[in-house]
Design a protein around this nucleic acid. Structure first.
Lengths: 201, 201
DNA sequence: GCATCAATTGTGGTCATCCCCAGTGTGGAA
DNA sequence: TTCCACACTGGGGATGACCACAATTGATGC
């Protein structure tokens, strides 16, 4: 896992340097990219932190870059910077999931605060995603039959009923059930239900 | 429960009439309010639908009205209309939970589409809130002791352990447990866990 | 062929759950 | 005071969950 970084995407070197310095003084690590294309080329799915994205750039605009990131399912919060934004643009990006939309000239401290909140938000996302990934990984270890039994167990059915529906013996159901608990790392049907309830499946 | 309504709050009668007519042609019921004060005075917690809120009004502005609604925990989506909005205003309201922010002059059809989406969103909220209310109501019917036992059951503990922790007999735990299932309308600890998992508590 | 794994079934037993029966004590409401 | 809700306790029995031990079949892979 890469370390959390504030990715600064701006074609103006002076702004990049200023932002980097600003963030460093607040103990936020930053990495700069001099164009949307460069950032998209270097972008990795396991990036985490946040993105500070200038809207007006020479080639690809920040808005186009944002759309490209949405298609790639980029999970990082995106903070837009712009000197010539309008209301529909701001509304549109926020409704598409942008974290914030700031107009130049902006208050340095306000920007850093937004960046820090965005990175905290991403850290929370990462944490919940990791537990989610653990659960998915364990679910994948289950054999088809075990998954079948698990769903019926979660439906609150007795082993006897499950055995009947699957046309197998109760004993076999018990074995599957036991393996499901073992592989999922739980000790009871209640824990299993709680583990799978938030994310469904 | 009141019927879903689009609440139009605007001090310009011409706009109110035009919006009402627009919505009626798309089978959306509307109710008009000629000021923010009037709307806040008539507002009821069980209102549902959405709110179309003009920002610039003679006395209380739409922004102030929005803040007052937030304090009252108004659940309805709020759609802002404005002729003189700026980016920070739009960003601020959206980040505070506004549904949309439209600048005049707006496309009639676009507005109606937004209103319809907002009302659909509120209908979904209402539906999930009702099931939530059912669960809360049942939880309230539990005696303190029953709630205590329920939490320990959800922690996956055996009756024996629960009895030990509460310094009561296993038999008593069984009685409470049984009553909990009965009052909550479930037949097993698994169902109980699934019922309470999304909403926690 | 041999090893491994998934799926299957069985015996016998322990422990937990659930429901029937019945009873005590306390505090608040009618 | 009487009545009721609540918390508590008990026995006994039916049923379900779980476990250790033991074993067969079929498919996959070396």
């Amino acid at each position: 896992m890469t370390a959390p970084l504030a990715h600064i995407v701006d074609d103006d070197e002076a702004i990049r340097d200023a932002l980097t310095w600003l963030l460093r003084t607040r103990n936020v690590s930053a990495r700069t990219w001099s164009s949307a294309e460069e950032f998209l080329a270097g972008w990795q799915p396991d990036f985490n932190g946040c993105i500070v994205l200038d809207i007006r750039m020479r080639e690809m605009s920040g808005l186009e870059c944002f759309d490209a990131l949405l298609e790639r399912r980029n999970p990082m919060p995106v903070i837009f910077l712009t000197g010539h934004g309008d209301v529909p643009m701001a509304v549109g990006t926020l409704k598409k999931g942008a974290f914030d939309f700031l107009e130049k000239p902006f208050d340095d401290n306000a920007l850093v605060d937004v960046v820090i909140r965005a990175m905290e938000s991403d850290a929370r996302r990462l944490a919940s995603q990791e537990t989610q990934a653990t659960v998915s990984g364990r679910l994948a270890q289950l054999t088809p039959r075990e998954q079948e039994v698990m769903h019926l167990v979660l439906a609150g059915k007795f082993n006897k009923v499950i055995a009947d529906e699957l046309n197998i013996s109760m004993r076999t159901v018990e074995v599957h059930r036991s393996r499901v608990f073992e592989k999922m790392g739980v000790r009871s049907a209640v824990e299993l239900a709680q583990l799978l309830a938030p994310g469904r499946d």
